[in-house]
């Protein structure tokens, strides 16, 4: 039914070599720092969509990880077809990412229409269960339509020639990932703060009924949020899969959970918060696995989440608001 959960990301490269080295070795520390930065950027690309959807309809979209997974699969399929035709790598990367983004947006749109829209006014528990159902459905849909095995994903991001000497510290693929995350964050922040649709999104998240009364097309705004969030996840899916080198139908689950932890850590609903939270999570995980143990990496992430929720439920950048009766 479900193959054993693969580790979402590999442990830092030289954890085995460390024995014998001075643990205060600055190069090792720097490597862990950069590893954490990459890791954080990866989480951030997924966490951004999570936080946007949560901000607007206050629903943990469990299917978000699955949308990321579908984006990666679509990317792989496009890559496979184009490689057959003999296109060059950069063109394939651009086209694969674009197609994956379009398809994932369509999935996000459809999922919202089927599983969330009809129960928007039902108790929260209903929407949450529906989201779990959607996640289960999409996982098994890809499992049945594609395969349960790990599929190798070709490395699409080329090594830049003059960067080669430094690539043992941070590879060009990792640089592309980090830059993409930064650009996406800035664009999303701009979208939310300065555009008309962004204003509508903020209004909807503050008070849906009132926004409706002032003429905001609620359904359109919510659909748009899902579309943008899903597109971000798909972009992440293609880049991350190409960086990690393999995908299967199960990658969305643990990635989704980690991204959620990051989003909560940063303050759910806030775009810069999601990125900050992802980076903090990435760094702590990286240093934890580098200096303590890599067996309990996921355990650590969950314990971290529990601690945040207990001591600072609003997250780093979130505002805590008291519930009114």
């Amino acid at each position: 039914m479900v193959s054993p959960a693969p580790r979402f990301l590999a442990a830092p490269r030289n954890v085995a070599q460390r024995n014998g080295l001075d643990s205060m070795d600055w190069e090792y520390t720097a490597e862990l720092f950069l590893g954490g930065l990459t890791r954080g950027s990866i989480y951030a690309l997924i966490a951004l969509g999570y936080t946007m959807v949560y901000g607007i309809i206050e629903l943990i979209n469990f299917a978000h990880g699955e949308i990321y997974m579908i984006g990666a699969f679509t990317g792989l399929i496009v890559t496979g077809v184009l490689t057959m035709m003999g296109w060059n790598e950069v063109a394939i990367l651009v086209i694969a990412a674009t197609v994956a983004m379009i398809y994932s947006s369509c999935y996000g749109y459809t999922i919202e229409k089927i599983a969330y829209k009809p129960i928007r006014n039902a108790p929260r528990l209903s929407a949450l269960i529906s989201a779990i159902g959607m996640s289960l459905f999409l996982q098994n849909y890809v499992l049945l339509a594609q395969t349960s095995d790990f599929l190798p994903f070709p490395a699409l991001i080329p090594e830049i020639g003059w960067w080669k000497p430094y690539s043992h510290i941070i590879s060009s693929a990792e640089i592309v990932l980090i830059i993409t995350t930064a650009v996406v964050m800035i664009l999303l922040n701009f979208l939310i703060k300065f555009t008309r649709i962004g204003k509508a999104m903020r209004a909807t998240s503050q008070d849906r009924k009132m926004a409706m009364l002032t003429g905001v097309d609620i359904n359109g705004v919510i659909s748009m949020t899902f579309i943008v969030g899903s597109a971000t996840a798909a972009l992440g899916g293609v880049l991350i899969a190409s960086h990690i080198g393999q995908i299967n139908f199960y990658i969305g689950f643990i990635a989704g959970i980690k991204a959620f932890v990051a989003a909560v850590l940063g303050g759910i609903g806030s775009v810069p918060g999601a990125v900050l939270g992802s980076l903090v999570l990435g760094w702590t995980e990286s240093f934890f696995t580098g200096y303590v143990s890599s067996d309990y990496e996921d355990v650590f992430a969950f314990i971290f989440l529990v601690c945040i929720l207990i001591f600072r439920p609003a997250g780093i950048l979130g505002r805590s608001d008291t519930e009114k009766v």
């Binding site: 529906s130 779990i132 959607m134 459905f137 098994n140 849909y141």
Partner: peptide, 8 residues
């Protein structure tokens, strides 16, 4: 697959 659909 059916369980997921049934939940929704």
């Amino acid at each position: 697959l059916a369980f997921g659909a049934a939940l929704i």
